[in-house]
Amino acid sequence: MSRARWVLIGGVVAVLAVGCAGLDVSNVLQGGMKLVQSADTFRGATADIDEPEEVELGRAVTALIGSRYPLLRNEALTRYVALVGNAVALRSDRPDMRYYFGVLDTEDLNALAAPGGYIFITRGVLGLMRDEAMLAGVLGHEVGHISLHHHAKSIKAEKRKAALKTGTEVGMTFTRASVLTPAVGLTIDGLGELALKGFSREEEGESDGVGFKYAAAAGYDPAGLRDFLQTLKDRGGKEAAVSSFMSTHPGAEERLREQDALVAKNTTPGRRNAERFQRALARIQKR
């Protein structure tokens, strides 16, 4: 039994002692039980999310993302994106996580990571790329969100906030219940928004850094992510989709500068695989 629980039980016993002096014992007992439940709530709110839970949340968020954008059910293209993604993920800090890659059938520019290894890239983003190194860089960035546990950190922060705000009820729901409960449903909705709109500037920067590292370790030219960001910058203002992407991903200029610095320091040459990328992309155009 944890020290916190002993302290709380000690408190309940002390209150009961007061109860014996003339207060309603049943009310005091209920109050004591609430205190113990609160301890569970706060312990749950600070507990880490384990992998099976993360995967299950990822499935739910994937279903949510699928409701916003149609999934491109092109087997060959999906397999190609997944192959590049797995090559990068194998070099990540969570290589034992099962990663699933999908293409969203929209001209919108986005690449996103749901919890549990589910990663998406839009047809619009693929259309802006010139080679596999760019794809590896962008997928490396998304793998970074998962390998750095960015979703789990957000969930933990949300659980803590909910436990502090409403005490036992919502906190207990977060820690004990299935995803069907409204509170956890809110978490999934929140995670979906997070995946669609991006993480904090700091987390995006962290993912850029490890994305660069994973792509390089997988044998790609790690300048791929920098080149993609540069392409976005060059086209900014000319296309509505690019402007929209830049507006929902603040700090693009800073990210570009950081990638420039990493590229300048890198001395290991890597592959671009432009031909293989163009062959795979032709599968979209042939639809």
């Binding site: 993302i65 087997e75 999906t78 997944a82 797995n86 699933y100 589910y118």
Partner: peptide, 10 residues
């Protein structure tokens, strides 16, 4: 959507 993605990985 989830089933399709999980079923179409290499």
């Amino acid at each position: 959507v989830v089933e399709w993605i999980e079923g179409h990985q290499p």
